[in-house]
C-alpha cells in the first residue's frame, strides 16, 4: 500500500476546518509527523469490512423525554464565563451581516 501523502494545501485546508493557525515553521514540522500518524492509522485499511453494516445503538420513541418546559439557568450564570458580554448577550466585534 502506498503511503498517504499530505500536501501543504491539504494541511491548510484542515487548519481552516479546525479554526487553527500554524506558523510556517510549525507547518513544516507538522507534515512529516502527520504523515507518520496517517501511516499508523492506515493499518485499518488492511481489514476487510465489506460485510459489515453500521449498527446504531437505539432506544424506543416511547421512552424519550416528555415535552415539558423547565426552569432555565439565570442569565448571569449563562454569561459568567464569557470574555465579553453586553446587554445580556455574548458579544463579538460587529460582523458584516
Amino acid at each position: 500500500m502506498s503511503k498517504t501523502k499530505i500536501s501543504i494545501e491539504e494541511v491548510r485546508r484542515l487548519a481552516s476546518l479546525s479554526a487553527l493557525d500554524f506558523t510556517e515553521e510549525e507547518l513544516n514540522s507538522f507534515i512529516p509527523e502527520f504523515e507518520k500518524i496517517l501511516e499508523f492509522v492506515d493499518q485499518v485499511k488492511n481489514c476487510d469490512t465489506d460485510d459489515v453494516e453500521i449498527e446504531y445503538t437505539s432506544h424506543k420513541l416511547a421512552t424519550l423525554r416528555e415535552d415539558e418546559a423547565k426552569e432555565s439557568s439565570p442569565q448571569e450564570e449563562i454569561l459568567m464565563n464569557s470574555p465579553k458580554t453586553k446587554k445580556g448577550s455574548f458579544c463579538v466585534p460587529k460582523m458584516l451581516d
Partner: peptide
Amino acid sequence: HSSQAIGTLIDY
C-alpha cells in the same frame, strides 16, 4: 448586529 461600538450580540 448592533452599532460598531457595541458590536454583534449573541442570544441563544
